[in-house]
């Protein structure tokens, strides 16, 4: 059993959720200074799903990450959490790729690995929010794809997935090899032990560049960014309702809501 997990490195979305600015001239998002790089949260959910399968059935888990200037200590956390192998696709040309180019790049690496039963990705990355790379990899490899999984299990040589939909969930079964994209409902990535974190910093990793992979990733880009802007903000002036006690403030709020005819 071989599981491949694709993980993107992003600026920590928790740390950057306020204070992120846009430079429209340079068409760049500027995250607050000191925002650390992290594994994209849905990708962490995907890794957690992979490690749970490894715990239950035994599996070799390979993590692939692509980009420029990857923060190796951050990605090595995947090894500390239970992955067996880390493959970094690192090249100056691997910056700011679109979903099409990224999917083709990851497929080049997956084909080098050769054998796999299950590929897991996050449902969307915390920076681009594109939500396409997983589906793209599956289509290029011509394997079934199940998106937005809240649960991933193996059963009789097949993958059994619960998929989040608007009014509940679906239970879907697919033959392997298959690709599954993970949603947050899977649960957080386990916290690695300190000794595993230390050991992971010393484990060998594989680094592959564009030339080694024989891929012109930047040349595969198909989408052009033409504008980047601040989002429109709701303009309100919040009236803070007070009171002698929290209870009184609550009652005053009810009076105000009634007076403003909000109900």
């Amino acid at each position: 059993m071989r599981i491949i997990v694709c993980i993107k490195q992003v600026p920590d979305p928790q740390a950057s959720s306020s204070g992120t600015k846009v430079d429209p001239e340079a068409m760049r998002v500027i995250v607050p200074q000191g925002t650390p790089p992290v594994m994209s949260p849905y990708d962490e959910n995907a890794l957690e799903a992979a490690i749970r399968i490894k715990d239950a059935h035994g599996a070799r888990v390979t993590v692939i990450s692509a980009g420029r200037n990857l923060a190796k200590p951050v990605l090595r956390k995947s090894l500390a959490s239970g992955a067996d192998e880390l493959v970094l696709l690192e090249d100056a040309a691997f910056e700011k790729l679109d979903s099409y180019a990224t999917a083709h790049l990851l497929v080049a690496a997956i084909r080098e690995i050769g054998e796999y039963d299950l590929i897991l990705c996050g449902r969307q990355a915390a920076d681009t929010d594109a939500g396409q790379v997983g589906s793209g990899i599956a289509e290029i490899l011509k394997i079934p794809c199940i998106t937005a999984a809240s649960k991933v299990e193996l059963s009789d040589g097949k993958v059994l997935v619960e998929r989040v939909v608007s009014d509940g969930f679906e239970v879907i079964e697919a033959p392997m090899p298959a690709l599954v994209t993970a949603s947050s409902e899977i649960g957080d990535l386990r916290y690695p032990k300190l000794k595993d974190l230390q050991a992971a910093q010393k484990m060998p990793i594989t680094v592959r560049g564009a030339q080694a992979l024989g891929i012109d990733a930047a040349g595969l880009k198909r989408v052009n960014l033409v504008r980047l802007a601040e989002p429109p903000r709701r303009k309100t002036e919040c009236r803070i309702i007070g009171g002698e006690t929290p209870e009184e403030a609550g009652a005053n709020l009810a009076l105000k809501v009634k007076e403003a005819k909000l109900l």
């Binding site: 309100t236 919040c238 009236r239 803070i240 309702i241 007070g242 009171g243 006690t245 929290p246 209870e247 009184e248 403030a249 609550g250 009652a251 005053n252 709020l253 009810a254 009076l255 105000k256 809501v257 009634k258 403003a260 909000l262 109900l263």
Partner: peptide, 19 residues
């Protein structure tokens, strides 16, 4: 548009009862 700064456990029951 309107807000109360306070512990919801205290604010909410009073808000609900008044409503």
């Amino acid at each position: 548009d309107f807000g109360v700064v306070g512990d919801w456990k205290k604010v909410l029951p009073a808000f609900r009862d008044k409503l």
